[in-house]
Amino acid sequence: MIASGDAEIFGVTLLTLLVSGLATLLSLLVGVPLGVVLGLVRFRGRRLVVSLVNTGMGMPPVVVGLWVSIFLWRSGPFGALRLIYTPAAIIIAQTLIATPVITGFTIAAIQHLTPKLRLQILALGASRWQFLWTILKESRIALMAAVIAGFGSIVSEVGASMMVGGNIKGYTRVLTTATSMEVSKGNFPVAVALSIILVALAFGVTYLLTVFQQWERKDRNLKLPQDQEFAPADRPGPIGPAIPNNSADDQKEAVK
């Protein structure tokens, strides 16, 4: 059934990937800056805030689902937006689930850096943004772990997606809710197929992210020479009058 490429299952898989991918992205946009601030800045009540974030890392999706539902229902404060039972509602709920995970990992990553490094960066005369950028670069492996954990926590959850999405066929049905429904229908072969797709999807995305995470150092060493500009004197020049020091595009133009 997987091999036959059922169009409906393909749609469900694509929706799962996009909903959870976008939610991870939004969580990054919120979670990383928040984590950096909580990791670097000392203020009164910081421990309380960090504890709250750490609690949030284990927030049951079904609880998030219930509260998002309460806000998005027609009778709720955002009812007029008509967001309940839409993919957007799932993205909101999943973002709320993944944000504490990514924030928590970012705090840990930032605090894991030795304080001497911070002093060193500042001593080298880095501006505020250069400082932050360097800090993030130094903790990139841990930050990628945050992305992996965040994506993993939401692509696999069923409670919130079921509650705020409603498992509507062809619209808000994602792999986890579809699996749950097929089990309740007694279609076990379909449920098993869906579960295999879900695990494969999670593995595929995690694999890509892991490759990206582990690849960086080697990559930086290899790329260095390319950054130096060489004069194109020894290259075959373009035919006709063309701006020198330009490459393939111009050549194509000239051939036409």
Binding site: L17, L18, G21, L22, G170, Y171
Partner: peptide, 22 residues
């Protein structure tokens, strides 16, 4: 690279929201 990946994700997501609409 990060920007490239993020923007690809975003584009995909936008495409999806169109595709996902009834």
């Amino acid at each position: 690279k990060l920007l490239w990946i993020l923007s690809t994700l975003l584009v995909l997501a936008l495409a999806a929201s169109c595709a996902a609409a009834p």
